[in-house]
């Protein structure tokens, strides 16, 4: 009986000490921010993958579109938007998507596809190697360097057998995608 009362009091104190008026959502990079970061690492050729897997999925990667940023021209009988970054892929209601991105399983799956594509494609992979001079590094420096490219000065431990796998592992990890 005493134990029951003690447990009830303990539970109550825990409940009272929980925040009732604030809630927190972790913010992740939205599709625009992600696109810029990945383009910096993998070069202009990465745009085709970023557009396919990330930019065209505003409901997964967030980031509102700009309705009046769209300017449609007639190119060979097709209406083509001159400013693709403004594109409302999911219709005009895309202008109401939050600028703060949340994490979800589909995002993680699409990031995996993106990162694998970036590494499998010769031009984007070679851009990454050249940009960060990976091939000039000693074996024991490679892992640390690749992690630092995404995580800057933060510690993050990762191990992989080869460079490609390592890049993918770091690329899909959630930490660097947090705002």
């Amino acid at each position: 009986m005493i134990l029951k009362i003690f447990l009830i009091l303990l539970h109550s104190s825990f409940v009272i000490s929980a925040d009732q008026h604030i809630s927190r959502s972790k913010i992740y990079l939205n599709r625009f921010q992600l696109s810029n970061v990945l383009m910096k690492h993998f070069g202009p050729e990465s745009n085709k993958f970023i557009k396919k897997y990330i930019m065209k999925r505003p409901s997964i990667f967030y980031g509102a579109c700009d309705i009046y940023g769209q300017v449609y021209q007639n190119i060979n009988g097709q209406a083509v938007n001159y400013y693709p970054l403004s594109q409302c892929y999911s219709g005009l209601n895309g202008n109401k998507i939050s600028m703060n991105a949340k994490l979800n399983k589909i995002r993680q799956a699409l990031m995996l596809k993106t990162c694998i594509s970036l590494v499998e494609d010769k031009s984007t992979y070679n851009y990454f190697l050249k940009e960060y001079q990976i091939k000039t590094l000693k074996k024991d420096q490679v892992t640390k360097s690749i992690i630092k490219i995404f995580y800057k000065d933060r510690d993050y431990s990762m191990k992989s057998s080869n460079i490609k796998d390592l890049i993918v592992e770091v690329c899909i990890s959630k930490g660097w995608q947090r705002i």
Binding site: I16, A18, D19, Q20, H21, I22, S25, K26
Partner: peptide, 26 residues
């Protein structure tokens, strides 16, 4: 605050007298 930090606040925060330390700070 919500845009910059992801923290959402209920306006009752300014009415309720029993707040946690985190709530009081915010």
């Amino acid at each position: 605050l919500n845009f910059l930090t992801g923290i959402n606040v209920n306006m009752n925060l300014f009415i309720d007298k029993n707040l946690t330390k985190q709530e009081l700070y915010i």
